[in-house]
Simulated scan of single mutants.
Amino acid sequence: MSGLAKNLNLGLAFLLELVVYVSVGGWGFTARPRLSARLLLGLGGPLLLIVLWALFGAPTATYMLSDWPRIGFEVLWYGAGAVALAAWWRKAPAAVFATLVVLSGVLARVWGQQE
């Protein structure tokens, strides 16, 4: 059972990462009235987050963060997703998302799933 729970948590973490990209993109495409601004925010926002994740957040990141810097990065990174989700859609799903991020992050650290 423990192995199954750990795998489910890894799957949840991946889905939460995808929600960040979708939320920022969705917010970007609806944030401004001008098409050029919507395209810049809707495509550029997720692209920026992909680059930041590759540099600092991914298991094979170029610059591995640990301990408090890692937690700070995750708070800002997932926080951007939660704020974008609240602005783009509704506050209740954003609160559920943020709760799942905290739960998954705590379990990952307890189970040694974070580098």
Rank of each mutant, 00 (worst) to 15 (best):
G3F: 08
L4W: 06
A5D: 00
A5I: 13
A5S: 06
N7K: 13
L8R: 00
N9W: 03
N9H: 05
L10H: 05
L10A: 11
L10T: 11
G11R: 00
A13E: 01
A13Y: 02
A13P: 00
A13S: 06
A13L: 00
F14M: 11
F14C: 07
F14I: 09
F14A: 13
L15E: 05
E17T: 05
E17F: 07
E17V: 01
L18R: 10
L18K: 13
V19D: 06
V20K: 03
V20G: 04
V20D: 00
V22Q: 06
S23D: 05
V24Y: 00
G26H: 02
G26W: 07
G28Y: 05
G28I: 03
F29R: 00
T30K: 11
A31C: 11
A31M: 10
A31S: 14
R32T: 12
P33Y: 06
R34T: 14
R34Y: 11
L35M: 15
L35E: 12
R38C: 06
L39F: 15
L39Q: 14
L39S: 13
L39V: 15
L41R: 03
L41I: 03
G42S: 13
G42C: 12
G42W: 10
G42Q: 11
L43W: 09
G44D: 11
G44L: 11
G45V: 04
L47R: 00
L48H: 03
I50D: 00
V51S: 09
W53E: 05
A54W: 05
L55W: 04
F56K: 09
G57C: 12
T60N: 14
T62W: 15
T62A: 15
Y63I: 15
Y63V: 15
L65E: 11
L65V: 12
S66V: 15
W68E: 07
W68S: 10
W68T: 12
W68D: 08
P69L: 02
P69I: 03
P69A: 06
I71F: 13
G72Y: 04
G72V: 07
E74W: 10
V75W: 12
L76R: 00
L76E: 09
W77E: 03
Y78F: 15
Y78L: 11
Y78E: 04
G79V: 06
G79T: 06
A80M: 15
A82L: 04
A82K: 03
A84M: 08
A84V: 08
A84N: 09
A84I: 10
L85G: 03
A86F: 07
A87F: 02
A87S: 12
A87Q: 08
A87H: 03
W88N: 09
W88I: 09
R90L: 14
R90N: 12
R90C: 10
R90D: 14
K91H: 07
P93T: 02
P93G: 01
A94G: 10
A94R: 08
A94D: 08
A95T: 00
A95L: 13
V96D: 08
F97T: 01
A98D: 02
T99H: 07
V101K: 00
V101I: 11
V102K: 02
L103D: 01
S104R: 00
G105W: 07
V106T: 07
L107S: 09
V110M: 12
G112M: 13
Q113N: 12
E115Y: 12
E115W: 14
